[in-house]
């Protein structure tokens, strides 16, 4: 993350004393919102996750502060979640989703950025075109792709014209894991649920996600490419390096921090995917597109096990993202040492 930390500068500023108060006055409006809806909400989330609480049965939320004993269940929600099949199915779905989408969008983003970074006419046009899906409404895109994936939609039309079979049941209605299907063709049955792979339905949403975010990754990579000084390449050219060598030995290593950023952003993005699933599949078929984020919604707001249970899933989601973030930072730190 592009974090620029403010460091206190020694200064003979005559209004230092004023700033000590004025600073707080200036940040007050933003902090008021942050304290209630961000910092407070995060702490509240932890607190609710330790209760068995749903609005209908228990009255207002202040109840769990005034009479915590009535709803307190300690870590029971967490225990229930970690021993529930639904959670682990959602975990697998989310993991497949991230494992498929993040490498694909990173790779395509890099390739497009390298191509668009050449001296070509219409570079602005290409950048504008590639980035347009990223600024469009996720609901709009989901509706368009619903139609594209539908039985009589253009994707099946193109496959038919090219002589390929279309999956049956069609795309978003297909709960079969793609690796399980492949192994089935090879005569291997009863694959472990961990190796079934993403369902065809989930894969359809993953492809939409790659389509939407590749442009974002390209734009970030383009900025990174433009920060590599040209004389590094000139020096390499004088030494007789080929284009491929330059790409492998200069471009890729110099882009490593950008790649770390792109992967982090990609992981955070894929772990919170929700809109597309709500519109396109509602978690089905057979819960095979229910991600962790979608499970929070179902348990909290769709006749699930209530706010306490949903909050506990949300906290687990938060911890997973935090762990991924620190893992990525460690890996990049090691890169720099080498």
């Amino acid at each position: 993350m592009a974090v620029a930390l403010a460091r206190p500068r020694p200064s003979r500023n005559p209004i230092v004393a004023e700033d000590r108060r004025a600073g707080w006055v200036f940040i007050l409006p933003a902090m008021a919102i942050f304290i209630v809806f961000v910092f407070g909400a995060i702490l509240f989330s932890f607190y609710v996750s330790l209760h068995n609480y749903s609005l209908l049965s228990r009255g207002g939320a202040w109840q769990i502060f005034v009479h915590p004993g009535r709803t307190w269940v300690g870590l029971d929600n967490y225990r229930d979640i970690l021993s529930s099949d639904d959670f682990w199915l959602a975990f697998r779905n989310t993991a497949w989703y991230a494992l498929g989408v993040v490498p694909a969008q990173t790779f395509f983003g890099l390739v497009l950025a390298v191509l668009a970074n050449r001296k070509i006419r219409g570079r602005t046009f290409f950048r504008t075109a590639f980035y347009f899906p990223a600024i469009s409404s996720s609901v709009v895109i989901s509706i368009i792709f619903l139609w594209m994936y539908s039985a009589r939609g253009p994707i099946n039309y193109v496959l038919r014209e090219l002589g390929f079979p279309t999956p049956r049941p069609v795309w978003l209605a297909n709960p079969n894991g793609i690796f399980a299907m492949l192994l089935h063709e090879l005569g291997i049955e009863h694959v472990s649920v961990w190796l079934e792979g993403p369902s065809v339905a989930l894969l359809s949403i993953m492809m939409l996600n790659v389509w939407t975010t590749t442009g974002t990754m390209m734009v970030i990579y383009l900025a990174g490419l433009q920060n590599i000084p040209g004389d590094v390449y000139e020096a390499a050219a004088i030494d007789g390096a080929t284009r491929f060598q330059m790409f492998r030995d200069i471009t890729i290593p110099m882009l490593r921090p950008v790649t770390a950023f792109v992967v982090t952003v990609g992981l955070i993005g894929t772990f919170q995917v929700f809109d597309q699933i709500w519109v396109m599949s509602e978690g089905g078929p057979a819960k095979k597109t229910t991600t962790i984020a979608y499970l929070v919604y179902v348990e909290g707001f769709r006749q699930g096990r209530g706010f306490g249970y949903a909050s506990a899933i949300a906290v687990i989601l938060f911890l997973i993202i935090l762990a991924l973030y620190f893992m990525q930072r460690r890996l990049t730190a090691q890169d720099y040492q080498m």
């Binding site: 961000v38 909400a41 609710v48 929070v296």
Partner: peptide, 21 residues
């Protein structure tokens, strides 16, 4: 800054409860 990486889904339940109150 660090709140930028927290998904909206993580705080949706408390936000709902606060707005409800």
């Amino acid at each position: 800054l660090s709140t930028m990486m927290i998904p909206g889904m993580v705080t949706i339940v408390p936000k709902f409860l606060i707005l409800n109150e």
